[in-house]
Design a protein around this nucleic acid. Structure first.
Lengths: 201, 201
DNA sequence: GGTTTACACTAGCGCTTGCTTGGTTGACCT
DNA sequence: AGGTCAACCAAGCAAGCGCTAGTGTAAACC
């Protein structure tokens, strides 16, 4: 049995599982359904994963690690101003929700189906991601770009962003860039909003 | 079998079901667990509800109708300024999340477990509620209190508010009033934020 | 050439699920 | 006294569940 997400085969199976978990929900997705989607028989599934729980954990781990990596590189490559960093985080968050949508929907909706061990491990990953946000928001507060309580502002912002998975349509006219700009514009003082990056037409 | 939520007995059973659905999730809550929590045998449950699905629909219907009613009376009894109406809606929303927490958590997390008929009926209720929000936000936009795209602003605000069910602690120091004030303060221009109501110390 | 490894198969065990059936109880009405 | 009705119960059915056991096979390695 594979134990790490490194195996390409396992990675592909994880991706398929994420899709089914979104469609049906974790509990209603049976191992037989998973196996069929993967083109194998249900027994063969347990060669790749110890049990059904481990598939859920793999899905969430994959998505969260990607989000963390994207956010870090977005912060590393943007201007070093509070505005630019805030914008980069929002944009990175929304782009992750687009490219890794299934995994993130699963993470948001099925978190409580994780057993305690997996939840413990994965909450460290999630905390690392949220810490990035809180740091960027702290900088914006210190610069007077936004006002309010540090804790509440970060919760509100992450709530607004995470909620997008319930209504955002990737096929629609609005791009992640647009959403990010609008959100940052909404929470910053009007006079403080910088011009949009030059990539926008 | 009862068919309306009017029966007091059924209303009480619905309340208990909401609690279990939050604790365990809809799919993992068995009819035997529900029956035990209600102090009856599993077969007796089907005297009150046609099937398990109907219990879920009853829970969500109850919560949404309460939210709608509270929001309407909050709007009816507040000052007729965009600020006051915005604030009243946010506060009403958060207070509903507090008093009817279980039902709302179920509505947010288990919506997709509804069968198409129930979903159709309940989405009309939900649309009526969201229409209240969009109206109030339109007024705030027209008054120049906030800026941005009508659609996006309302989604962001509702996202921030709904997300509170994931982190808000009713036992903590922050009251719904505080959260509402902070959120409105965050999205409105600083100079436009009115003084807090006199009930705040 | 023999052994190991990765991946897949068939068959089915033991258990739980939502729901049904047929019948009982006790409060209330006429 | 006789009838009604909501509320409940004991028992169990058919279907589906996660997972295991044991086996086959083709490629990779020594």
């Amino acid at each position: 049995m594979n134990v790490v997400n490194e195996s390409p085969r396992r990675k592909e199976l994880t991706r398929l599982a994420a899709q089914l978990f979104v469609q049906e929900g974790f509990d209603r997705t049976t191992v037989r359904m998973l196996a069929q989607e993967m083109g194998i028989k249900s027994g063969s599934l347990f060669h790749h994963f110890r049990d059904k729980q481990e598939i859920l954990a793999a899905v969430i781990e994959e998505g969260t690690e990607n989000a963390l990596q994207i956010a870090r590189s977005a912060l590393a490559s943007c201007d070093n101003t509070p505005q630019a960093r805030l914008h980069a985080m929002a944009r990175a968050h929304l782009e992750t929700l687009l490219t890794d949508r299934n995994a993130h929907v699963v993470a948001l909706y099925e978190w409580r189906r994780l057993d305690p061990d997996a939840r413990d491990h994965l909450s460290h990953l999630r905390d690392a991601y949220e810490a990035l946000w809180e740091q960027v928001i702290d900088e914006a507060l210190a610069a007077g770009l936004i006002q309010g309580d540090r804790f509440l502002v970060s919760r509100f912002v992450m709530g607004a962003l995470n909620w997008t998975v319930r209504w955002y349509d990737p096929e629609g006219p609005r791009k992640p860039e647009d959403l990010a700009r609008e959100l940052i514009g909404m929470i910053t003082s009007p006079r403080a909003v910088p011009a949009a990056p030059s990539t926008i037409v």
